[in-house]
Each structure stands twice: as structure tokens, then as C-alpha cells.
Design a protein around this nucleic acid. Structure first.
Length: 493
RNA sequence: GCCGCCUUAGCUCAGUUGGUUAGAGCGCCAGAUUGUGGCUCUGGAGGUCCCCCGUUCGAUCCGGGGAGGCGGUACCA
């Protein structure tokens, strides 16, 4: 029983926590289509499905230790009744590293696994950014070969195409953390804090442009709201060296040549160049051309666990929000090589590489671009509850339709027939079944094709005419009901 | 976290230079149409004007504080 009405001050407000969105049937249908398409690609490449729990021990996830001042920073954490800290996973890679370390002896290696599921991040949400969202990952653990990276990139490219993104509307950008380290060496940046500041500045190139990044590499930048961001403190020559590095993107071969000129000679830089050359060769043999995957020295990605190649999937589709404003979705996925993550558990360096699709964001982007499949979700055939004393008969009709494989329901509200028709219309039902006194007496059923009515209603101005017309309505012998409805659902039969 | 803007009906927003019954459009419910979705017309329901404190005879409006939302920026393992 519902509680009696309370004074409004005591009533809870019906609302979502910030960054947590309800997802209705049409949203989920779009997400499911993406997951199915991407999963099929992963399985074709020989990756096996793995599901791990939503919660992990906080220390297994990374740097957030139970005794840190703010255990909830970045993740949603709580203390179990045995006082151990647990946290909701913030991605699918850290749980994979835990799983691989835990089961290493029993796995066929290299271990190739894909996974999808919700992840949670306790941070400020923004447009297209939620605190709960779906990711879909594929990772290879136990191979240091650049071919492993190339294969991950090839799958990401195929996955993008499989979700319905048109040719040329998305591109994978590839870089290497080793190149970035080589760049630091050649620009004379040794101090860790300054390195991070330089990387962060480079990461913003697509958003702030070269001038903004130049400010961030130097003294700092004042944004339009009046907030000041402290810069990396490089001198002019060093800043220009960094910018020259970011400008080296061109064709894949040409990029490697140019990069070699900027940072060749440093150990890390040469290693990175060799790896990218290996990836380039493998990509070409996998049939992934420069139209789908390019080297882009400005790609940085996450700052902590990547050790080599890093990847980012960027959407180039023009998208608009409800108000017609252009929206940049930018990155819809990313990944890279993380050779040290499993070693956190085992002490043994275990090479690994992977890629993660941001499924929720990809779905939102496809919707905004008008590319999502099947926006409307079809409702069931509605059996009109015409005579409240005949509910048993209506349920028998619904059961009969269900047995025939046709989604059906009896209207269970209190409203009259007009409202019931409106209900069926709103559910986007294909048909309504009307059985009243006349039909019961005659042993018939009236079936109304609602799609046909939807189409015809546009041409009828007058209500009396609209009603008299009874568009798409037929009365058939009761025994032929299912067949009549099937004819509406699939006119080709 | 920092900076800025904002908060009035389910939604989008008017409005009250502090005064008694706070409005519109859309949406919702119903009637016109004893058994039929759209259109049209008519009627109805729906609001502690974000919260608290202060000033005032009187605050949705003024002052202070708080919360929430939006945007930018930072962070994003």
C-alpha cells in the first residue's frame, strides 16, 4: 500500500543523482546494437568473454589506498564490514590486470579477452560525460609484440565501422609514451611535475589550439571564465620544440621520418620509433590504411599506467544538440600498452595492450548524428478491455497471440475505450484488438491496423470522417484472429 | 577544486518597481463523439515562486548564508 500523502517537506524529491542517467528502451536498444556489433568483431579475432565483479578491493584498482585522505576521490568507495575498502571499478582494465595476475598459471597465454559492462567514476559530469557508463574492451595480456598493438587497433577500426559509423567519419590516432618521453629528454624536461604539465598541455591541443598550448607550456593561461591555469614553465625554445613535435603528424611513413628528426637519438625516442614502425608494418598487412589509423604525436591519453603505444578513437561526425548547437564528442574510445599493470600484483613484468570503447558516449554520438538504428521501440498488440466482466476472455486472446509469438497485452487501466486506443498509439503498437458485445455475439474479433491509421490520419481533417472511415479496421472470425494480426505485422505473407 | 551564470506548474518560460485569488504555450486528464488513436473546440487537475536566517505591518521579489542546476577551467589512474 502506498503511504498516505505527507507534508511536502517530508516528501523525497524524485530526481537522479548528478551524472547518473535513466536509460530507456530506445537508449538501451542503441547500446545493445553497438555491443553486439563490437563483440562480434572481438570474437572473430579470437577473444574470449570475461565478466568480473563491479566491486574490487580499492588497492587492486590503483593508487587509491584505504588510508588515503580522500578514499572516495575519483572512485566510489566504501568500507566493508571487515573494514577493508572496496571500490566500484572505474574501468575494465584494472580488473583484468587483477584477474590475469590471480589466474596466470592456469591461463593459455597470451591471454586474449574482451569484456563489457558498467563502470563508475566519481567526478564532475559534463555534456556526454556521466558518472556511470558502459565500456567495451579487448585486451591481450602476455605479448610484447607490436603486432599485438596493431591487432587491437585493427579491431577498434573494424568495431567502429560495425557500429554504423560511415566510412571516413572516425579515425584512430596512435602515439607512443616512449616518444613523449624522448621529447621530454630533447626539450630538457627532467622534473616529474613539469613532465606532467607538458603532457597535459599537449593533450589540450585539439581544444585550445596551438596558441593556447603555447601559453600552457610557458607561464600559464587565463580562460574565458577568468580562471588561471598555471603553465609548465618552459622557455620559448623548448616550447617550440614541443610544438614542432606535435606538428609532425602526416602520412604514417612521413610522420616517422619527421619524428625521427625531432627526437631521434634519445633512447626512449628510438625505442618508440621502432615500436611504431612495427605497428605500421602490421597494420598495413592487416589491411588498415592511413584513412582509418594515423600517427598523431599530440595524443597523450591517461597519464599513469600506459608504458608504450597509446590509441584514441575520434569521431569526425558533425553532431548537434537539441538546440542545434554543434557538439564535439571527440574521443569515443582509447587504449594503449600497459606493461607494468599486472606486475603490481605479481612483481613480474607482463606486457599487455588493449582498447576500450565508450559505448554510452558512442551511442549518444550516433543518436546526435541521427545514425542510430530504430529510434522507436515497438509496443505490443493491445487487447482492448472493452467489457470489464469479460477479462478472462481478453486474457485468453492475449495468451493465444503470445503462443503464436506475437507480443500482446490486455489493457489493465481503468480508462474508457478512447483512452485505450490512445494508449496503444503511444506504445507505438502495430495493432489493437477490439472485442465488444457485437463481436462476442457474432463470434468475431475486430482488428485495427494502427500503422495504417497513423499514415492515413494525415489526410483526414474532420473528426466525423476520420471515425467513420475506421481506417485499417477489419472484423474477422474469432478463429482467424492470429492470422489477421500476423498479416498486419508482416504484409508480405 | 576554482571562476561565471542560473533556480517560478511535468517541460520551456513570462511576471510581480515588496501587498490579498502568481500567468502563458506545450504536455497531462476529461467532455463534445452510448464502441475507436490524429485535428478542432470546451472544461479540469497541477505551484511551500529552491531552502534557511534577516529586514519589514507584510518577502516569490530586498540583504546574508546554504543547496541544486548549467557553462568554462582543473582533474580524469
Amino acid at each position: 500500500m502506498p503511504d498516505p500523502p505527507k507534508p511536502s517537506a517530508a516528501r523525497p524529491e524524485a530526481r537522479n543523482p548528478r551524472g547518473f542517467a535513466d536509460r530507456r528502451a530506445r537508449d538501451l536498444a542503441a547500446e545493445r546494437a553497438i555491443l553486439a556489433a563490437v563483440s562480434a568483431v572481438y570474437e572473430r579475432y579470437g577473444f574470449e568473454l570475461l565478466e568480473t565483479p563491479a566491486f574490487e578491493f580499492t588497492d587492486a584498482l590503483g593508487k587509491f589506498l584505504p588510508d588515503a585522505d580522500r578514499p572516495n576521490e575519483g572512485v566510489f568507495a566504501l568500507q566493508d564490514d571487515d573494514e577493508q575498502w572496496l571500490a566500484l571499478r572505474y574501468d575494465l582494465t584494472a580488473p583484468l590486470a587483477r584477474f590475469a595476475a590471480q589466474n596466470w598459471e592456469t591461463l593459455a597465454k597470451p591471454f586474449r579477452r574482451y569484456a563489457f559492462g558498467l563502470v563508475w567514476r566519481n567526478e564532475k559530469p559534463g555534456p556526454g560525460r556521466y558518472r556511470e557508463f558502459v565500456q567495451c574492451d579487448a585486451d591481450t595480456v602476455g605479448s610484447a609484440r607490436p603486432e599485438a598493438d596493431a591487432e587491437i587497433i585493427a579491431m577498434a577500426a573494424e568495431g567502429l565501422a560495425a557500429t554504423g559509423i560511415p566510412e571516413g567519419a572516425a579515425v584512430l590516432k596512435i602515439n607512443s609514451r616512449k616518444l613523449l618521453n624522448g621529447l621530454m629528454a630533447s626539450a630538457g624536461v627532467a622534473e616529474e611535475g613539469q613532465k606532467l604539465a607538458v603532457l597535459r598541455a599537449v593533450d589540450k591541443l585539439d581544444r585550445l589550439g596551438e596558441d593556447g598550448v603555447r601559453l600552457l607550456l610557458g607561464e600559464g593561461r587565463l580562460d574565458e571564465s577568468g580562471a588561471f591555469t598555471k603553465g609548465a614553465g618552459l622557455d620559448g625554445a623548448a616550447a617550440e620544440r614541443v610544438l614542432a613535435f606535435t606538428r609532425a603528424g602526416a602520412g604514417r611513413d612521413e610522420t616517422l621520418n619527421r619524428l625521427s628528426n625531432v627526437i631521434g637519438g634519445s633512447t626512449a625516442g628510438d625505442e618508440g620509433l621502432a615500436e611504431l614502425a612495427g605497428i605500421e608494418a602490421a597494420l598495413t598487412s592487416l589491411g588498415v590504411g592511413p584513412d582509418r589509423a594515423v600517427f598523431d604525436p599530440s595524443v597523450v591519453r591517461g597519464l599513469e599506467y600506459y608504458t608504450g603505444a597509446v590509441f584514441e578513437a575520434e569521431l569526425l561526425l558533425e553532431t548537434k544538440d537539441e538546440r542545434g548547437q554543434a557538439v564535439r564528442f571527440g574521443s569515443v574510445g582509447g587504449g594503449g600498452r600497459y606493461d607494468d599493470l599486472v606486475a603490481r600484483f605479481t612483481g613480474e613484468r607482463t606486457p599487455a595492450t588493449g582498447f576500450s570503447f565508450g559505448v554510452s558516449r558512442l551511442a549518444a554520438a550516433l543518436r546526435a548524428a541521427g545514425r542510430d538504428r530504430g529510434a522507436e521501440v515497438r509496443g505490443p498488440v493491445v487487447v482492448v478491455a472493452f467489457d470489464q466482466g469479460r477479462m478472462a476472455d481478453y486474457f485468453a486472446v492475449a495468451s493465444e497471440l503470445r503462443a503464436a509469438g506475437i507480443p500482446a497485452e490486455v489493457y489493465l487501466g481503468q480508462s474508457g475505450m478512447k483512452a485505450q486506443m490512445k494508449y496503444a498509439d503511444r506504445r507505438f503498437s502495430p495493432a489493437a484488438v477490439i472485442i465488444g458485445e457485437d463481436e462476442f455475439a457474432a463470434g468475431t474479433a475486430t482488428v485495427k491496423d494502427l500503422d495504417l491509421g497513423r499514415a492515413l490520419s494525415a489526410g483526414v481533417a474532420d473528426n466525423a470522417a476520420w471515425r467513420a472511415e475506421r481506417p485499417g479496421q477489419v472484423t474477422v472470425p474469432r478463429a482467424e484472429l492470429a492470422a489477421a494480426i500476423r498479416k498486419i505485422l508482416d504484409p508480405r505473407r
